[in-house]
């Protein structure tokens, strides 16, 4: 969830070359960098962009699935999806905490992150701008969207930044439950009535382009902005967008087909010679629109978040006052 980080101005500041050299040596040695360690501003700013977007995407990502929480079709399903969406909020908490520590030198905190989200400065992941129209969509988010998220998050389990890496360890452990939760919803629909199978296939058809877009364009030329090289240089992530997309297809396409599902792309196949999946490119212009908060549900999701944030701001203000006289 880091691939379309906007180009950061002023990153190439005059760092102390010796400090920078030492720092890069630590990165190469596989050392973990901690919050209060010296770090080049390019590293700090890349992490802030990456992790704030990751964190705020979890908070925004709770919304499309949450629409189905009160509606889930049995008490067990209601409980399971509630626990799952709760975890997403929890992941948001972990990642926002990591970001907040990185932003301290800039005098910024969570309030600024929320304000940046609401003003459109801080972007959230493309998949969470999409509608969840049926219960099958709740399953699709749990299965394939989370599947894609697991691919990108496990890729950073050895990230050079200690606090991020530790948060990811926690997150990926919970993702195991999420993966199986999604599979369970999908399996019931795939083995269910004709109507259930139909909403499942419809859902996959609608989500397919978003799933391909999930990992971002293969190169910056496609959309004009990508920080994948920088994140790889600093040993934050290991693989490129395209490598991750291929890994996702490797893991999930056989499962998709085994359930009797199809994808809305007749050219889609595995090429044995090139050893990769061949697929039709999604519309990257649409992708650019989506991440500029011009996706199908961008405005609505931001509106829900804005109301939830502002309508109860009196609570935070009230306890900020009270905080002073408490031991």
């Amino acid at each position: 969830m880091y691939h379309y980080l906007e180009h950061q101005k002023g990153s190439n500041t005059n760092e102390d070359p010796i400090l920078y050299e030492n720092f890069m040596q630590r990165i190469e040695n596989g050392d973990k960098i901690e919050a209060n360690d010296w770090m080049p501003s390019e590293y700090r700013d890349t992490l802030i962009k990456l992790i704030s977007m990751h964190g705020i995407s979890e908070i925004m990502g709770a919304l499309p699935e949450k629409e189905w929480v009160p509606k889930a079709p049995s008490l067990e399903r209601k409980l399971a999806i509630m626990a799952k969406v709760q975890d997403e909020m929890g992941h948001g908490q972990l990642l926002l905490r990591v970001t907040e520590d990185l932003m301290k030198p800039y005098g910024r905190n969570r309030q600024h992150l929320m304000e940046d989200l609401l003003s459109g400065r801080l972007k959230f992941h493309n998949v969470f701008h999409m509608p969840t129209k049926t219960w099958a969509d709740a399953g699709m988010v749990g299965w394939l969207v989370d599947g894609a998220a697991i691919i990108s998050q496990t890729n950073m389990l050895d990230a050079s930044y200690g606090p991020y890496q530790r948060a990811l360890q926690r997150i990926c452990k919970e993702e195991v439950f999420h993966a199986q939760h999604g599979e369970s919803i999908i399996m019931a629909l795939a083995e269910g009535t004709d109507a259930q199978q139909k909403i499942l296939q419809d859902s996959l058809n609608r989500w397919w382009p978003s799933l391909l877009m999930f990992f971002g364009p293969a190169s910056a030329e496609t959309t004009g902005s990508s920080k994948q090289e920088i994140t790889i240089k600093y040993n934050i992530r290991k693989s490129t967008n395209e490598e991750l997309r291929q890994a996702f297809l490797d893991k999930y396409m056989p499962r998709v087909f085994s359930l009797g599902l199809t994808v809305p792309d007749e050219t889609m196949h595995y090429d044995d010679v090139q050893e990769k999946w061949i697929y039709q490119q999604p519309d990257w212009n649409e992708f650019k629109q989506i991440i500029q908060n011009k996706g199908p549900r961008s405005k609505e999701r931001l509106k829900v978040r804005e109301i939830a944030y502002s309508n109860n701001s009196w609570v935070r203000e009230a306890l900020a006052v009270a905080g002073g006289d408490r031991p």
Partner: peptide, 22 residues
């Protein structure tokens, strides 16, 4: 409670509230 999920005034309070709801 399930309607509140994701909408509480503070993220940490949201997570804890959801446990109570579950």
């Amino acid at each position: 409670g399930s309607e509140w999920l994701g909408l509480a005034p503070h993220v940490e309070a949201d997570v804890a509230f959801s446990s109570i709801t579950q």
